[in-house]
Design a protein around this nucleic acid. Structure first.
Lengths: 216, 216
DNA sequence: ATCCTTCGATACAGTGCCGTATCGAAGGAT
DNA sequence: ATCCTTCGATACGGCACTGTATCGAAGGAT
């Protein structure tokens, strides 16, 4: 059941449907995007849809799982792409800037996904099954990111003024809100005000330890 | 046109429709809540609806305006309810706790409105007219809050490590995200984890000035 | 009490979307 | 090349909701 062998053709149509759905979810919202519209955008009819998914809900599930994987891989790649030397040889500010640049390039940190994520979060709130999957996916990415921050701090011999997981929540929430504000006011994506905002937060909340170590 | 004189009866049905709409927007989302459902919840038929509003969009507009007013008044009342003595005679931590308590009690900081606000934000993103009104309303509340924080800091002779308006964005975004996470994981409203989270943020980002004044 | 206006209920036609059942055509295996 | 399976297109019945047009009743003014 869970391990249905999928042919290449089938996988391609699934992918196209998922891509079209993501686009339309961002453009018109999860609920407003009709199955018909999704199929049309993907170049299929509803026959293809119902042959691949049981319902729009199930497509959301698949979308979430696919994206979750992409995110995890993207994060890992992004982390691996930061050479060790950066963490030890540069100033905190430089590390922060570098990390932001790498993450931005490697993950799909675009406005579209910000919108879809927001949409799905609200949609999942009303759908127990989807809610489980979403929570699980976000938890995974979240804990990976927290680990990354924590280990980076350790290497720099720096510490955060607040618990690292809360710091992560703040960064995520701030990023999303900034992007949303930009989207609402029609600010072009290239302006990227969120980037400097996050740098400012990190500079304020991450500090080098006191001269005298308080250890024990 | 804008100054249509409204009878008492009419105003009551409008209010009931708005209240029902807010409920359903939170329960089932703006888009999923049909006009029919809203009317049913309010105890009317669609005749009443279309006699009062041109469309669901216009109802959203009205809802936003009504809530905007309530929020502004609530904020002003909350601010006025904080006696001057608190700002001068207590520690920073006490002021923060006190302020949070007052705001929480005075404003409609409930999960329902958090959801509706989220919903409307996304809905407004696709609706130019609504977007204008939403942006304007949020701007008003926002600047009032920023002023309040700024003046409180000044009285305490404290300063923020980051610009106050960014601090406000963080607080708001963090609050909303925490509430949303709680809602998604089914955490009961009384736990109110967001409260201690915000206190932690403020304690980290708001500091008393250095002994030697750096002025000029 | 009566009249007139306001306001909400009812009835109707129209639309878009859903999910299924059926059919025809790719496309892989031999 | 042929067969057979997989997969997507087509066609159909049905439903929920929309917006309008009409009607009747509540309620204020005199």
């Amino acid at each position: 059941m869970t391990t249905t062998p999928v042919s290449t053709r089938r996988q391609q149509t699934r992918d196209r449907l998922l891509a079209a759905a993501a686009e339309l979810f961002a453009e018109r919202s999860v609920q407003a995007a009709s199955v018909e519209e999704i199929c049309e955008r993907a170049g299929f009819t509803r026959g293809a849809f119902y042959s691949n998914f049981e319902s729009k809900d199930e497509l959301c599930l698949a979308l979430l799982e696919a994206r979750g994987q992409q995110f995890l891989e993207g994060t890992r790649r992004a982390l691996a792409a930061i050479p060790d030397s950066v963490l030890t040889e540069h100033t905190l500010a430089e590390v922060i800037a570098k990390a932001l640049a790498v993450f931005d390039a490697s993950l799909a940190l675009d406005t579209r996904w910000m919108l879809v994520r927001n949409e799905l979060r609200l949609y999942a709130y009303r759908n127990p099954e989807l809610r489980e999957v979403l929570s699980a996916a976000e938890r995974k990415v979240f804990s990976l990111a927290v680990e990354a921050i924590a280990s980076a701090l350790q290497r720099q011999n720096a510490r955060s003024l607040i618990p690292v997981d809360q710091l992560m929540v703040i960064l995520d929430a701030y990023y999303e809100r900034s992007r949303m504000n930009d989207a609402l006011t029609g600010r072009p994506e290239v302006d990227a005000e969120w980037r400097s905002g996050i740098e400012r937060i990190l500079r304020a909340l991450v500090v080098l330890p006191e001269p005298e170590p308080t250890r024990d």
